[in-house]
Amino acid sequence: MQIKYDYIFAGVGLASLMILDKMIDARFLDGKKILLLEPNDKISNDKTWCFWENDIGGFDNLVSKKWKQALFVNEKQTIKCLSDGANYKMIESIRFYNYVLDKLKKYPEIIWKKESLIAFEDKYSEVIVTSNVAKYTTIKFFNSVFDCSKIENNKKYPLLKQHFIGWFVKTANPIFDANCANFMDFSIPQKGNTRFMYVLPFSETEALIEYTLFSADLLPENEYEQAINDYLKEKGAHTFEIIKKEQGNIPMTVFPFWKSNSKNVLHTGTAGGWTKASTGYTFKNTVKQSERIVSLLKTKTIDFRKFHKPNRFLFYDTLFVSVLYKNNALGKKIFSKMFLKVNPKKIFRFLDEESNLKEELQIILACPKIPFIKALYSSFIASLTQS
C-alpha cells in the first residue's frame, strides 16, 4: 500500500531545509510523514551565502566569518557601507546543511530518497509526484527544482544573470584588511557591461576574489580568470596560490514564478522567485518566506495560490532589470550615484524590502533619470497592451 505523505519536498537545498528548520522550531513536524527527493548528497560546500545584519542574528552559530566594515569602490570614491553595529556575515552551505540535517535525524518518519523529480500534478485533494523511480502522493508539495527553460528567451520578462568565477587565494605578502569586505569594486574596466570585483578577506593574506557581472551573456572562462589575476597583481599580490575555485550563475528576473503555484503546490527558492532580482541575494528572503510558510501551515485553510504577496519592490526590481538589460553599461553609474548620494544604511533597508516611501524616493532620485523614465514608460505601455 502506497504511503500518502503530509509533505513532499523536491530538492534539498537552502529553501527546503530552511522551511524544515522553521517547522522544527515551531514543533510542526511531530507525527508528520515527510519525503525528501534529492539525488545528490549534501556533503560538500557548494555555495556561500552572505548577508548584512546587526550584531545578533538567528544563524550566528553557523557564521564562519563576519566583517565589521564593507566598501563600495569606483575609481574616484571609496565609501564605507556599514554602521550602527551592522556586520556582513558569511555562511558556508555545508555548515547549514549539516545543522538542519542533524536536527532532522530526530524525526524517523522523514524519508530521503535519492531520486530526481520528473513531474507533479495537483489533483486538488492530493498531489501526485513522479520521480525517476516511482510515484508518490502528498497533501502539500514544495518544489525547489529550478527549470531555467521557463525564463530563457522570454521577451516579456528579460533575464539578466549574475555570473562569476571566484578564486580562494593565499598571497605571499599581506594585502587584505581581514575586517573589511568589498561589496563592489567598480574600478575595473567595464567593457560595455556591469562588472565589479567582490572581495571577502579571511586574513591579511587570504581572501575570496570574485569577478562578477550583471549581464545577459556569460564570458569565456579565461576572461574571468584573467581579470582576477590582473586585479590581484594591481593590488600588489605578485605571488599567490589558488586554494580552490567557485563559479555561479544566478538568474536576475522578475518572471512571475508564483503563477505556477496551485492550491497544494508551492514553488520555493529560485524556482519560486525568492532570489532578489536586482541583487541576486537569497538568504534573508528565504528566512522570511519560510517563516511565512510555517504561519500559513498553522491555519485551517491552506491555499498556496494566495501565498505570493505583490509589493512595490517588485516594481522597482522590474525597472532595474529592464534598464540594465537594455543598457548594460549603466550599472556602474547607477550604483555609484546611489552610494554617493544616499546613506548606505538606507540602501540596504531598500534592498531588504524594509524601507519606507521617503527612503525609496531618495534612492530613486539618486539614480540616472532618463533610463528609468524610459523603463517606466515602457512598463506603462505594456500594462495598457495587456489590459
Rank of each mutant, 00 (worst) to 15 (best):
K32P: 09
K47D: 05
E38H: 08
F51T: 02
C50S: 14
G58D: 15
A26E: 11
P39S: 06
L37N: 06
L36W: 08
F59M: 10
K47T: 03
N54Y: 14
V12T: 08
F51R: 01
D41N: 13
A15N: 10
N61T: 11
P39Y: 02
T48K: 01
K32Q: 12
L62V: 05
G57F: 09
S44R: 00
T48S: 03
D25W: 00
N40D: 15
D60G: 02
I43E: 06
L20Q: 12
K47H: 06
S16C: 09
N45K: 06
K32Y: 04
S64D: 04
D41G: 05
G13I: 07
G31F: 14
M18V: 10
K22I: 00
D25H: 12
T48A: 01
D25E: 15
S64N: 08
L17M: 10
I43H: 00
D41I: 03
I43F: 00
L17S: 07
M23Q: 11
S16G: 12
N40Y: 15
K33T: 08
E38Y: 09
G31Y: 13
L29V: 10
N45A: 05
V12L: 14
K66P: 04
L29D: 04
K32G: 10
A26Q: 12
V63T: 11
K66D: 14
K42C: 00
A15Q: 09
S44H: 07
I24S: 13
I19T: 15
D21P: 02
I56L: 13
L35W: 02
G57S: 13
S44L: 04
D46T: 02
M23L: 15
L14C: 10
L35E: 00
D55A: 11
F59W: 11
L35H: 04
